[in-house]
Design a binder for these strands. Sequence first.
DNA 1: GTGAAAGCGCTAACAT
DNA 2: ATGTTAGCGCTTTCAC
Lengths: 332, 332
Amino acid sequence: MAVTSIDVARRAGVSQATVSRALRDQRGTSEATRRHVRKVARELGYVPLQSGRSLSTSRSRRIGIVVGELTNPFYAALVASIVHELDARGYLGVLLHDSDICEPDSAPIFDGSFDGVLLTTTSDSRLADEIERRGIPYCLINREISGRRPVSANVPDNVLGAELVAELLIELGHTEIGVIAGPATTSTGSERLRGFRDALARHGIALHPDAVGETAFTIDGGCASARAVLTARPALTALFCANDVLAIGALEAATQLARQVPDQLTVVGFDDIPLARLRAFDLTTVAVDLTALARRATAHLLDRVEDPQIEPQRVVHEVRLVRRGTHAAPPR
Amino acid sequence: MAVTSIDVARRAGVSQATVSRALRDQRGTSEATRRHVRKVARELGYVPLQSGRSLSTSRSRRIGIVVGELTNPFYAALVASIVHELDARGYLGVLLHDSDICEPDSAPIFDGSFDGVLLTTTSDSRLADEIERRGIPYCLINREISGRRPVSANVPDNVLGAELVAELLIELGHTEIGVIAGPATTSTGSERLRGFRDALARHGIALHPDAVGETAFTIDGGCASARAVLTARPALTALFCANDVLAIGALEAATQLARQVPDQLTVVGFDDIPLARLRAFDLTTVAVDLTALARRATAHLLDRVEDPQIEPQRVVHEVRLVRRGTHAAPPR
DNA sequence: GTGAAAGCGCTAACAT
DNA sequence: ATGTTAGCGCTTTCAC
């Protein structure tokens, strides 16, 4: 059995309650006993049991982070950033893979393990509904869930980003344009497509149905979808991809189909993940400041955890176009 | 306040103990009450509180997974695989970023939150020592810690992998060879370097000190180190990188220095991460089956969790050379 | 098959 | 400033 606070108390010659107080630097303990108790606790290697603590306080100082695509570099980086922010405020970030929460019954989210939850990948609104219903503080990051009552969220300006890309392509003179979109069920998938389509429409350019692919946010998905689109519409000279992972897949497809980028094909992504700036890709893309996304969302969530009165807040983050090497004027 | 088992008991007209038993399908509860209790529990949205449960059982059905470099695609994939395996046996995988465990005092690893721990990134033996001392079941994955008493570990055959690369390079006719090694404190860093150096030595080829870089396992590190090595020893015709992330960095460096791969420079990696097979890299590398690594390690850890009598087990996994497009004979 | 009661280790309210 | 006590929600004897 592990060392308990009672063991420490006995050894230090004080009551168990004093141990508890002293180790948490509570006022109402003399400097002397505090030091003494600390010393004994260290000697014994005492670590307070989390379950005892949280059973008594109804708090865990842990935040659940729901991520689906951990192998997606964007989410990996986002998570790293979130974990860092949480740490700075004394919270532990716990990653929950999507699969962990399939069954709402046994979901660790609802068993009191977390003081709050950050939802990144989630497109399934059922989970968010359930979290809301149970009054667990939460905040959406990057993706959000189709409109209803105000909820806390931190998202990039998807529509603006898509517009920036549309304007770039038009400025370059492209008219035969395709899109590799993400799942329509995700806000990043649908909004980026919609913003792009609308912006093109304002310039009198229509997207042909066959020029629009929809796929999961994976490299393989992007590659397959780009191949399909480029095969169906060989005249396309530019491809807007709903994120960088898809764009990397599209670049792979272009290589496989022997289409030179950017001379024969322009490819633009979204997110500006670290891989994008590698010379191997040198991807023109829309930069999302995921550190800012993580920082804002985390701060807001913890504020709400510590004071439930605080109103939900939706923040839309600026984006900017990063011109690298995968765009050019269409071939004549 | 959340719904408790007492609420369910009252509503179902049974005792609290019966609720507890019924929901866990314990023998000693009639099929009828079991169904009834389940129904009421579902209606009320009851989820057993984890802290109550684990305070009472000293078990959490949670496994801590210590990872440092989550943004390293290899570890991201490894973690995804581990989480999957754990899930299959009814355990929850909880990711612990290295930073969470800096302070051994408050470390969540020691507060009873986990039934066991999987250590991936860790090169710091202090943590493993402490885990061992406290009798927490654990298993090392991919990396291990320099020799001492037998501990559970699942690692790739680093020495064999390095030999395969050495033989490939020699077979191609390279003699001016460099290495981008990982940190000497990691087994993947040191063993791959040692195995490679020894294999070359057996063929009468020595590694010049300036031809060996040592760096953190990041793309930027690999790039910077490769630049340094290639600048110090311009005659080098081949570079063995201790993992694929470093190799991707080396390819970046080659591009920056305008060295054609593979015609002017051969680059070989280790791990065979998904990115490696992209045409943008088309990296020749040593394949490690991380799914097997994850599966074996997870199974063994859980066996030990459920039966502490089981002996620690060290498993060395096969590796194989994957010949892609970044190797060639040296230029004449 | 089910209920009553003890106890897991902690924090917090109440005494002193 | 410190000790005493109750209680958090669960599992698990032990009676019946």
